[in-house]
Simulated assay, not measured.
Amino acid sequence: MTLSSLSALTSLPATERPDLLAAPVAAALAAWPGAAEVAVVEIDPDLADTAAMSEAYDVAMTASGNCVVVAGARAGEERVAACVVRADTRADVNTLVRKLLDVRKASFLPMDRAVAETGMEHGGITPVGLPEGWRVLVHEALLDEPVVVLGSGVRRSKLILPGRLLVDLPGAEVVPDLGR
């Protein structure tokens, strides 16, 4: 799979380069039927943040997805979700996500905890390979993108996949207007 805006980079089937993936991402791809359509590209880890990567590699923000982890509690029960939004938007955490989680207050999971619980690096968290039972809220706008660039679980690479595959991730729920 190639992406013309990432033409300076070489993409390879992600399952052939587990060394460029966090362990949970590699394990998830090994078991996921959609993995045949997922590629990985190696990038400069200093350019892992979406804005820097988009500028350096000429990737449209509309073709990139950001994944943030959010949590809230109700009656002593913590509810966690990963929100995957188009990079030119921000997850509507305070209204929409809070309502979807049915909590009084939704907040970003502290980074050290998100890193520990996902087994992924800060700046590389992706919806592929998240802990079992986590909800994955997917911005509907990403499904129409022919190719989406996501984290790979590590800062030194990115996943590339058709947006339509995001709906097939374990725990995925398509949410209109998730990104604002």
Rank of each mutant, 00 (worst) to 15 (best):
P127V: 00
L100F: 04
M53H: 15
L109I: 14
L150H: 10
P162Y: 00
E117V: 15
L20P: 14
V149M: 14
I160L: 15
A51S: 14
R113S: 15
V38S: 11
V85C: 14
P110M: 05
G124F: 01
A31V: 11
L169F: 00
A28D: 04
A91R: 07
V80E: 01
L166G: 09
E77D: 07
A22D: 03
D44Q: 10
D168G: 10
D168W: 00
A91T: 06
E16M: 11
V59T: 06
N94M: 04
A22P: 04
D44E: 08
S107G: 04
I43Y: 06
G72H: 00
V97Y: 03
V25G: 01
A172I: 02
V70T: 13
L9F: 08
V68Q: 10
A14G: 07
N66T: 05
P131T: 08
G151L: 06
M1I: 06
A60T: 03
L142Q: 04
A30K: 01
A36G: 09
V68F: 12
R155L: 14
V138L: 11
A30H: 07
A23C: 04
S64C: 15
A39E: 13
E78L: 09
L3A: 15
E145I: 12
N66W: 08
A39G: 09
T15N: 13
Y57H: 13
D92E: 11
K105S: 13
P24C: 06
V147P: 02
V136C: 15
D144M: 09
R155M: 09
R113L: 15
S64H: 02
C67P: 11
L3K: 12
L166F: 03
V40H: 10
A87F: 06
R113N: 14
V69I: 14
L178F: 11
R104K: 13
V41Q: 09
N66K: 10
G123K: 04
S107E: 08
T62M: 11
R104D: 12
V154H: 01
I43E: 05
R180Y: 11
T62S: 13
A73F: 08
R86F: 10
E121P: 07
V68E: 13
L20C: 10
A82S: 07
D88K: 05
A116S: 15
W134E: 12
R113Q: 14
V68R: 08
P162A: 04
V68G: 15
E140P: 10
I125A: 09
N66A: 10
E173M: 07
S11F: 02
V84N: 08
W32V: 14
P131Y: 02
P45F: 11
D102Q: 08
P24Q: 03
H139I: 00
K158A: 08
E37V: 06
S107A: 13
L159A: 12
V80I: 14
S64T: 11
S7V: 12
A26Q: 00
L29R: 03
V38F: 00
G179L: 05
